[in-house]
Design a protein around this nucleic acid. Structure first.
Length: 359
DNA sequence: TACTACAAAAGAGCCACAGAGTTCT
DNA sequence: TTAGAACTCTGTGGCTCTTTTGTAG
């Protein structure tokens, strides 16, 4: 397919952290300039390519939103994400639904990306999408944990419910939720390092998708000094929900990507934040902030997953073989227990380790 | 436009049991 | 202080029921 461009580190891969801006060497890059063969952050790109007319005509492409290490080659409309060839292949070959995502080759962008005179070649769609996303991102992100310091637990909604898409890291200090955050942190650790928190003799812990975990480590530290602490984003949604878009039918169609994230039906007893009068952003955002927010939002949107993770494959196996009455687990009869005993014995023999195989 | 009836979707809860974790002796 | 027993808690999947939302008349 597309040859990996640039490849500053020569790895061309998607397995390390985000590519650092070749100019300031501080922020994560957001665009790749072909003319300069350079990865640039929002700020440096703005400075460099607004310097003169020649520079402003440099063709740039967004950096892959998944790995942040290679120039994007395709735009996935369903995920509203720009992806490099490698990530595109990875993500969209993961399952049949993902493979149906409509993707289009990304066209280079030129001119000023962030000013009012944005002239993107074939970027109108992107721009329109930006607006949509910005609005939505504003809804999602307006409770900025950094800025809204009155309530240390502002990741939680008024009735104590967790808004799972807000950053939870800052809530560690909230005493009422220590138990939750402990669990969260455990899970986070587990996902972060791809190592089970503990190794169990019996229950074989299902390995967390390490590749995905890495994606979450990348974060979107556009302004490391300001944002890193708040947004060292690990995207652990909840203890029973994992976050891969690769192993689930996520956002199957373009419409889904819009519908599913926007205003999920509030469950009983929850407060619908979207139904009230329009909430105001806590402060005026700079274009850079907005861009960063949108990108961060997109990243979350992309990696969001509603399917639960099986932590204990053995329990799953037991549950599946367990007799049921109207969906409920039923007591085993002696005969069933015997048969089950035989079954598990055979399984142990075949597997060789006495551990229920993971799926 | 307001109301009613129905369908669809979503979420909660239930069940038994293996095994991890905690407390007690 | 350590070992073992006893107890408590957690997680697992499929079904049903309830609630909410959307649509048609």
């Amino acid at each position: 397919m597309l040859k990996q461009e640039g490849g500053g580190d020569g790895d061309g891969g998607c397995n390390n952290g985000p590519h650092i801006c070749d100019s300031c060497r501080a922020a994560a890059c957001t665009v790749y300039c072909r003319a300069d063969s350079a990865y640039l952050c929002v700020s440096c790109d703005g400075h460099i390519h607004a310097a003169n007319r020649v520079a402003s005509r440099h063709e740039r492409v967004w950096v892959c939103e998944a790995c942040e290490r290679a120039p994007a080659a395709y735009l996935c409309r369903a995920d509203a994400a720009s992806l490099c060839a490698t990530c595109d292949a990875d993500i969209h070959s993961a399952n049949p639904l993902a493979s149906r995502h409509h993707r289009v080759p990304i066209l280079p962008i030129s001119g000023s990306l962030y000013g009012p005179s944005t002239t993107q070649v074939g970027g109108e769609e992107e721009e329109a999408m930006d607006e949509e996303d910005e609005d939505e991102a504003a809804s999602w992100l307006l409770l900025n944990p950094m800025k809204n310091s009155n309530n240390p637990c502002n990741g939680f909604l008024f009735n104590g419910e967790v808004d799972e898409y807000l950053d939870l890291v800052d809530c560690n200090s909230c005493g009422d939720h220590i138990q939750f955050t402990d669990q969260y942190n455990q899970n986070q650790q587990q996902q972060h390092y791809g190592v089970p928190h503990k190794t169990y003799g019996g229950d074989s812990v299902v390995p967390v998708q390490q590749q995905q975990a890495q994606h979450f480590q990348l974060g979107l530290d556009f302004e490391p000094s300001k944002m890193e602490a708040a947004y060292s984003y690990n995207a652990s949604i909840s203890h029973s929900v994992s976050i891969s878009s690769m192993d689930v039918g996520v956002v199957p169609e373009a419409t889904m990507s819009d519908v599913s994230i926007s205003h999920p039906r509030p469950s009983k007893g929850t407060i619908d934040l979207f139904s009230g009068p329009p909430l105001q952003l806590p402060c005026q955002l700079t274009p850079m902030d907005r861009k960063a927010r949108v990108l961060r939002y997109r990243e979350k949107k992309k990696t969001r997953k509603f399917e639960k993770t099986i932590r204990y494959a053995s329990r799953k196996a037991y549950a599946e073989t367990r007799p049921r009455i109207k969906g409920r687990f039923a007591k085993r009869t002696d005969v069933e227990a015997e048969v089950d005993q035989m079954f598990s014995t055979n399984l142990m023999t075949e597997a060789g380790y006495g551990i229920v195989p993971t799926f």
